[in-house]
Nucleic acid binder design. Structure first.
Lengths: 266, 266
DNA sequence: CGGTTGTTTGAATCCGTTCAATACCTGTGG
DNA sequence: CCACAGGTATTGAACGGATTCAAACAACCG
């Protein structure tokens, strides 16, 4: 299950508009004690995000086991936290619809956005090491996540080899993604960072069957700046600059990438 | 086995001067085909880094299984690569003696140091996701690593629950460490970055039974700068600044932390 | 010992921040 | 439906921290 924020996926897989379906299909039984809003999840085996989340090699029996583990979803309202730093870690999450930001906080109150997660991507990996979440996950819009109880997942991994390998791959990919982000923060100019950010988002939307050229940002300029290590004014200036140079067409949160090659050359 | 770069360890564990022992104890049989320099490893169960690398809960039988997997070490000369970006991934590594830097490279040739690894820390996690290493690991001094064939480790994890959990913890901790580094790169001034770097190194040396106050840097100013997202001149200026302010005593690669609290307050 | 590599320090420059003013949305309530 | 408020976005001008360029020095190694 679940791919990491910046997954390497076979593109062109058919992933229709799962993001529009905010209300779960079976708005029924409360399952997890700690979470009053939790609901019974539709089967993984029938999920639109399946190609992103689940290892391809699973047979029917293994799929059924997975379905038995991932039995609930949870809606998260815009601005609400899926979890916060210090919360006990019990589950991983897969974004089913909507989007999130992951943030870490310094003792002095400084915040930093470590990533944005959209449909099909994983949340909560930071909690495994210490059994507590290391940062907050905040919904950028009304969203739904699948809940994957980690103890059960671990047990399943001891039986289902492809699943085990998938989890290792997922965590490793997250490590690699963060390495790229460190390189971005450590070596790139503001202009290059914003260009890289837009191209990365574009690629991820495309992999989900959405337009690579035109999409809506769910985050504010400030959140983008906090992710890219710059001030919101600088983000805005870079958007304006790209506009002047006919590389993108940025109108508030609506982004149209006019010249992807040009952006990549920045 | 293996802790991650910035491990959360029970401090005060007795870990004597393993770093001095550069030559393996059994300089014998060549084991892995691809690696002419590989040698038979001393038992994990007898290793000085044991408290750092191995989950505490293992019983004798499980330890023996682990010993059977980690059966070779490899010396790496200063400046040589343990692996390079694009190399096929087969094994994880634990630093047995010496130290390494991990670097990632952009297409345009820009390099960025993503971490420094010292004795007891893990290397190679970046390769699991794609079956290829994502960056280079370069020895900062003559060093020795334990070789952990990943396929065998995975198999063992399916049988030994504490081992499985340990690997997940390790990878999660690396994700958390990288998050902190992103925050450092994204929000801190040069002065704060260098102070944080010194305190982090100090803590890691202390956890290994070395002095927290006085140690030798194995990396150049340039490598530090590349890790902290600044130029080598800036690193040097910050060292001089801390010297003037009586926070540290920096003499080339020899560092003495005079006022740790002061450094933390920067 | 000389050559190479690494380190320190100064002065000028530049990129991104800061501060400030204005404009633009978006949702809410009259 | 419109007006209004609060958050969000854009743009300009001045400032400042880090870089760049340069020179001198120290340390290391064959």
């Amino acid at each position: 299950m679940l791919a990491v924020t910046d997954p390497v996926i076979a593109p062109g897989s058919d992933l229709p508009a799962a993001r529009a379906r905010v209300v779960p299909i079976h708005p029924l039984a409360r399952t997890t004690g700690t979470d009053p809003a939790a609901r019974r999840a539709p089967r993984c085996s029938a999920c639109a995000m399946r190609a992103l989340c689940i290892p391809a090699e699973l047979n029917a029996e293994e799929l059924a086991k997975l379905d038995a583990i991932i039995c609930s979803t949870r809606p998260v309202r815009r601005g609400d936290a899926l979890y916060r730093a210090g919360d006990a870690f019990h589950s991983l999450y897969a974004v089913r619809a909507g989007s999130f930001k992951s943030i870490v906080m310094h003792r002095d109150g400084r915040e930093h956005v470590t990533g944005f997660q959209i449909a099909g991507e994983a949340l909560g990996l930071d909690g495994i090491g210490t059994a507590q979440h290391n940062g907050d996950a905040i919904a950028l819009e009304d969203s739904v996540v699948c809940i994957i109880p980690f103890a059960q997942l671990e047990a399943a991994c001891r039986e289902i080899k492809p699943l085990q390998h998938h989890i290792y791959q997922m965590m490793s990919s997250e490590i690699v993604r963060e390495s790229s982000q460190m390189m971005l923060l450590g070596t790139m100019t503001a202009e290059q960072r914003v260009a890289t950010f837009l191209l990365n988002l574009s690629r991820r939307f495309k992999a989900r069957g959405f337009s690579a050229a035109e999409f809506n940002l769910r985050m504010t300029r400030e959140e983008i700046g906090c992710y890219l290590g710059m001030k919101l004014e600088t983000v805005s200036r870079m958007f304006s600059k790209f506009q002047r140079e006919r590389l993108v067409d940025a109108n508030g949160k609506t982004i149209r990438i006019v010249d992807a090659e040009g952006l990549a050359r920045v």
